[in-house]
Design a protein around this nucleic acid. Structure first.
Lengths: 155, 155
DNA sequence: GACGGAAAGATTGATATCAACGTAAATGGG
DNA sequence: CCCATTTACGTTGATATCAATCTTTCCGTC
């Protein structure tokens, strides 16, 4: 039944308990569900909220910059914009000078919906942060940010 | 142009810098890409690796237990099994006594592929953990685990 | 100005994710 | 034993995610 080449029980348990990738994916799914549920009355997901918040700036940003900020593929951003455009919350326009590029901006309806979403975020985030020890949130953010950075070249 | 009801610049920046959900999603995407790339020679994704590792136990577990462990929807697990079944890495069988339930088990080919994947995980994980300060990984895992827990009822 | 490489996105195809709804089986109370 | 409830999954439809590949445009060099 058991082959000597198989992964041992001890190794299995070690990986399960220590894999940061698994821990992060698990937390990502749980948090996504929780915020999705909170935003549901507005018809927004956590990802749509974060994207719209990233677009809420004076100068309409190009797609590449936002994709990098969200650490997502450019093509994922293209797809994520579709439902928001359909609902008239976001507008995509050609870049004024660079014809390769496109810039994104919230519409008035988008800004209005975002304003409704912020109190929900505040409440949900406060509840969530309450499960963490004092000062733990800051440390957590810092650690996640360093993990999200692309691997440094070793030279 | 600017409506008094709009979300202020200060609020926008606060949410962007503090939202744990965003930080976790970002790290999740970055880590997923990194492990996916490492496992690519084997044709595995990080999620498939974690799932197979979770199945690598003496008793074939039922779907619900694994879905809970991975903090994912049961239907997501159903979908995730499809490619692994097609490749003959995992087998799904009816539960021996409970006819509602189904249990999953690695095939010999699945166990063999998992054995190839473990050294890749070890190397990649070591590189990744190196970007964290001493003891930071343990704290990070603990914080993520508490975030991944379902919100406690307040009574 | 032509040309070659780099940059910015789009499209396609595969998998991942979950809510909503539906089905079947176990379970507990009468 | 019967029925209502709970439990365990599946299916469908929508969105999310990324690699691979392609097109268009910009920029620097000659």
């Amino acid at each position: 039944m058991s082959n000597p080449a198989d992964v041992s029980r001890a190794t299995t348990l070690h990986v399960r308990d220590h894999c940061l990738c698994l821990h992060v994916q698990r937390a990502a799914r749980a948090l996504a569900r929780r915020f999705d549920e909170a935003f549901r009355p507005l018809g927004l997901t956590n990802g749509q909220f974060s994207l719209m918040m990233a677009l809420n700036q004076p100068e309409p940003p190009p797609m590449g910059r936002i994709a990098a900020f969200l650490a997502m593929d450019r093509t994922t951003l293209t797809a994520a914009l579709k439902p928001l455009e359909r609902r008239g919350l976001v507008e995509v326009r050609p870049h004024p000078t660079d014809r390769r590029s496109r810039v994104m901006a919230l519409t008035p309806a988008g800004r209005a919906l975002l304003a409704e979403a912020v109190p929900i975020w505040t409440r949900t985030h406060r509840e969530m942060e309450a499960t963490l020890a004092e000062g733990e949130a800051d440390r957590l953010r810092a650690a996640l940010a360093s993990l999200a950075e692309p691997p440094r070249a070793t030279h």
